[in-house]
Structure formats: C-alpha cells, structure tokens
Amino acid sequence: MRELKIFAIVAFFSLLTYYLVEPYAHHAMHMKVDKDGNEIKIESHGFTYDGTDDIAEAKRKGDDALVAKKEAFWSDVVVVSSMTGDTVAGEAVFANCLGCHSGANINMGGVVPPNLDHAGAIYDKNYLIALIKDPAMASNVDHKYADTSMHPMGSIKFTVTDNQQIADVVAYILEKKVGEVTAKEVFTEACVRCHAVRYAKMTQIGETPKFKHRKDALAHEIKVIEEQDRIKAYMGNLPPDLSMMIRARSSHFLETFVENPQSGLPGTSMPRVGLNQEGYEKVKEYLTEAGDPSKKAREELGPWVIGFFVIFTILAFLWKKSMWRDLH
C-alpha cells in the first residue's frame, strides 16, 4: 500500500538522522583513543578493584617503571586479599584509624576524614586493602604526589606496615562496620566531604539545618565556605555540586567514573572512592532522589498515557474508516 511505503521512507530517513546525530555522534564525540589511534574501551568492572585500569593507564603513558610499580602493588593486594584476617587483632589495629576517622567532621590535611561506620558494607575488600597499603596508589591519584606518603592519609604506610595487620583490620571492618545503611548515609560517608548537593540541602560539612535567624544562617554559610576553601586548596578546584549529576551524565559515565575517576577525566584530582556494587547503588539512589525525584512517577504514568493514545488511535482509525468508507 502506497501510504505504508511513504511511511517507511519517512521513518527510514528520520531514524537514520536520529542514529547519526545521537548514538553515532555521541560515540564519536566521547571516544578516547591511545597514541596509535586505537579506541580505549572504558568499561565497568562491577565495582571490584584489581588495578586493571591503573596498569593499562600506566602502559598508555609508556612509563615502564610506573607499570612495574602498579603491577607489584596490585599483585601484593591480591596476596593480602587471600590471607585470613583475625578480627580481634584487627580491632586493635583499627584503633589507629580512629585518631582521624573519628566522625568528628574536622578537616585534616585538606579534607575531612570520612566516617567509617559502614565502611565494611559499602567499600570493596581489595580497595580497603590497597588503601591501607598506599592510599594514593589505591585511589589512583599517585600522579599528584612525588612521594605517596605525602597523601593526607599517607602516614598509614608507616603505622600499619605488616600484611597480616592489614588483613586483620580489613577483616574487622568487613565484619563489624556493617549493618543496614541508608542511601543518605552512604552518600554522606563516601562523597559529602568534597561534594555538596544543594537540592538536598547537603554541604561539605553535612546537612544544613533550618535557622530562624539570618545571622545564624550566615554564620553557618561562612563555615561552609571556609570548608570549601580548604577543599579547593586540597583538590585544586571545588568539586562540583552533584544535585543534577544523575541527569547530567549517562549512567555508563557515572559507573565508570565512580569506579575510576581517571577513566572519565584523565588527570583529575578526584580519588577513586572504592565503593562496592551495593555502595554505588545507594549513591545512585541518593542522587536520583535529589536530581530526578519524579523518575518513579514518570515511569508509572508513562504506560497509562501511551495506552490512552493507543486506544485513541484505534478509535480514530475506526472513525476515519467509517468516514471514508463510501468515498472510493
């Protein structure tokens, strides 16, 4: 039938244009290539960490010494990972951590040390091991430091030196620092020391309370600005507010970026956070609540509206048919 043929032609050219300007153009736009022009595939590793990305990055830089260093580091991590940790001994080692990770919200060396109350539930085991071995290497920001012990947490290298100690403390964290955790808690523990979310009234120093007097509100705001200045000094610039991030970036970007910030923004000073799959899901949930709270309503209403128009179209077709029946 002629109309269907015309429709097929219109649909073909529309879809072709769509394909070219959307999937194809965006792929070409965001494609990263190495020196030899080969495409660098950026893929998620399911929020597990074994240094694959880090070593590949070092190889692309052509720095053999760095490659060797990273390979040695991550193979060491695997060794510790296979050791059996003792939680009782681990608790004693953990006492070392509490000096900084006290949950007191005090900036130390440029940033507030994160609260570790749910660290065992939200961070990956290998990542925790790597972090205690060498924080800058684990979070893939070693390029920022001539000597990785200059990292704010770098001194851990001298406090917890023994592989067994690391295995013990990680075993302790994985067993004791767990439990039910809300999306907001995960986000606060993992992201808030650097990122604000103004749509959720979240700043770098936590959720903003309600103030009755303008003076108190301004005093609080100054405290926030001061903390932001410290982070700015530490990170180079102020990490972005994440209110709309869930809509501003694709889910693929967010996943691979959180897993390894260097994959999306080479050279960024943002450290790898080391979230596991569950931790990431919670962060995503929190960001969705802040930046796309109507997602659920939208997805629920969709089928009804589309269903309405399907029936509308059927009725309109029957009406049209009855109208045009005796015309030819």
Binding site: F312, L315, W319, S322
Partner: peptide
C-alpha cells in the same frame, strides 16, 4: 445505517478524548 456507524464512532472518540482530558 452507515451514518449511524459514523456518528457512533465519532461519539466514542469524542467521549474517550473527553475522559482523557479529565486526566490532563
């Protein structure tokens, strides 16, 4: 007969649209 059918279809479409516009 044909006219009735036409009217019936037009009316159903109209009513259905009106129901939808309540949602809007």
């Amino acid at each position: 007969m044909e006219k009735e059918r036409r009217d019936f279809m037009g009316l159903s479409l109209g009513l259905f649209t009106a129901a939808g516009s309540i949602g809007a």
